[in-house]
Amino acid sequence: MRIIVPIRQILDPRGFTVSPRHERIFINREEYIINPNDKNALEVALSLKDAGDAEVIVIAGGQARLDDALREAMAMGADAAYLLTDEVLAKTDAAGVAEALARGIEKIGDFDLIVVGQETLDTADALLGPWLAEYFGVAQVGGVRQASVSDGVLRVRRDWGAGYAEVEVALPALLTVAPGANKPRYPHGGRIMAAYREWQVNIWGSEDLGLSAADLILLTQRRGRTFPPERTLGERLTGSPQDVAAELVQQLRLRGLVG
């Protein structure tokens, strides 16, 4: 079974602070990490590999620095990595990347399953999964928590209202994994060393994918940014515990929060 996992990269949120008051983002440390939700997707793929015979291929498109993300994914357990980058691909937007990834996956060959993180943590865009499912015309299951395969049938546990639904899907298919669906494994120490010293990341440029700058016209345009209003502090109740409790209940009633 061949499983493809697209990997995206975001600026490490621990390295910057957002100041609504100054309407600025202060970057203290510019470091890029794998989009956490993509790690959840990779974990789903790797657990399928743990359970049976599967090959996990990671692929990323955009800037050259994605190389580090792909090597980390290999250290976590992926078997091969493809990086789609050149000057043209580095400048495109999420839609362009999605198109490039679709072409890249096509070029890799047949696949049984694509597992994608549902959204990115930075810009919260969720277009990659549907885009790829549409491109390849395969079934898509969203909000995935867990997946297992038996007798060529994929069984998926997905979010369903306040609970879960168990879904069966025929392969090939595409899964979008819910954020925080699992605790992704740590990369293995020995594989980290091998990922940089022994293993290769295959690199394809836009020409290899049959794409030109004209195919990658930006669908989105950045006009600026605004910040949500600063949250104000609540009201502080003082007095004896009995008074505070009574006052609290009254305030909650007044706001219609309790019956």
């Binding site: 293995h188 120490g189 060393m193």
Partner: peptide, 21 residues
């Protein structure tokens, strides 16, 4: 995670990360 054998070569089940690792 291989952290019980970080400095030793991978052929012995270590990480091959040497003394620096």
């Amino acid at each position: 995670l291989g952290l019980m054998g970080v400095p030793f070569p991978r052929k012995y089940g270590g990480c091959g990360a040497g003394e620096i690792g």
